[in-house]
Design a protein around this nucleic acid. Structure first.
Lengths: 208, 208
DNA sequence: GAGACTATATTTAGCAG
DNA sequence: TCTGCTAAATATAGTCT
């Protein structure tokens, strides 16, 4: 009795050239997969080598996904620590007061790998997008205080500024990370049977 | 005649737990390898999916390696474009005037994958570190204008600020990228026989 | 249109020079 | 330290559900 010689169920991974994927759909799929892998790599790098890693990815559609890394504790301490009452002459920026809850949602959306959590609240997604837009609009006015000068900086200044930016962003991400962590009461990502989701998750406490 | 049954030349890659590598040396090696792989992934992601990607890695030793990516042209245009003479009331930041040359060096050091180039000028490295420190010191005073407030931001503000930061940083990296590119007259990374350096390089022009 | 799956493409841990 | 090698560990393209 001859077996229908059914073909291989799959050709397996194919080699591809590193060039823009033309197919809109395939591009989107690839983006999701690789973004996940990318963030995972970031996570591993930060854990294995005790390195601070910050990564931001803007989807073609314009959405931002960020990965904030390790030294959460260290930076948290630095930014929220003892000297909380410092000299900030905040006279130009608008005060957007908001409670904790929303923050969690936004971070979840912006964040890449907390997918497991996001999964459970995908419904709120749209509300978030809306919020994001509104906020951006509200900030467009005073927002210029930062980038207005970038174009005018000398080479030296540019580099220095960039460095500062990284450091600050690091702090921002760190604090955000911590807030999310607090809000969700997460110490480690929720256990997930999916093999992809394994690999550690990206909110680590560790080191420094 | 019995063959000495020589063992496998290598056990091949071993599985490791994702946890801080204790061995100082092994950690350093791993850092180098994975940093390279990480940046490569960033590059591929940006090219394949036409996504903007920014990644910064701080080595345990404190050095920063950054990967700026794609929409160089787009952002360059945005930051250096037509409306160069905009409304910046720059009354607080010091003006550090410097010529092009140094910029190239610093960027090279800061950048990870231009190693091939860096290789050829490692000697100047120390001068750069010195410069960096001096600059940082000089900037420590007015530097506070940014991070002083981070600790005081509400959740909403934090996220918005983070988003802006990413965008700006993207711009900074983009401009820096372009400057380096101009200065070195590079269109693509220098050809290198080393297999590691293969994989595309990270300064792309492409898309958007 | 997000996951599951399979077969390959890539990455990289542990060594050796 | 840095480079190269080898083989096992992962990441993922293409498909199907």
């Amino acid at each position: 009795m001859v077996v229908p010689a059914r073909r291989r169920p799959s050709l397996g991974r194919q080699k591809i050239e590193i060039r823009r994927i033309e197919s809109e759909e395939a591009r989107q799929v690839c983006f999701s997969k690789r973004r996940a892998g990318f963030f995972k790599k970031a996570s591993e790098l930060s854990i294995l080598c005790s390195a601070d890693v910050v990564a931001v990815v803007f989807s073609p559609a314009g959405k931002a996904y960020s990965f904030g890394h390790p030294s959460v504790d260290y930076l948290l301490e630095r930014f929220m620590g003892p000297n909380t009452g410092n000299n900030n002459n905040d006279t130009s920026r608008p005060g957007v007061q908001v409670r904790r809850g929303r923050m969690v949602d936004k971070l979840n959306r912006q964040y890449g790998e907390v997918r497991a959590v996001v999964e459970a609240q995908r419904a709120r997604q749209e509300t978030l997008d809306e919020l994001m837009d509104r906020e951006r609009a509200a900030r467009s006015r005073p927002a210029a205080w930062i980038d207005a000068d970038v174009a005018h900086m000398s080479a030296e200044e540019l580099v220095a500024f960039g460095a500062r930016l990284m450091a600050v962003q690091d702090g921002v991400v760190a604090r955000a990370d911590q807030m999310l962590r607090d809000a969700l009461l997460i110490g480690r990502p929720p256990t997930n049977t999916n093999s992809r989701a394994r690999g550690g998750g990206f909110f680590h406490l560790h080191h420094f």
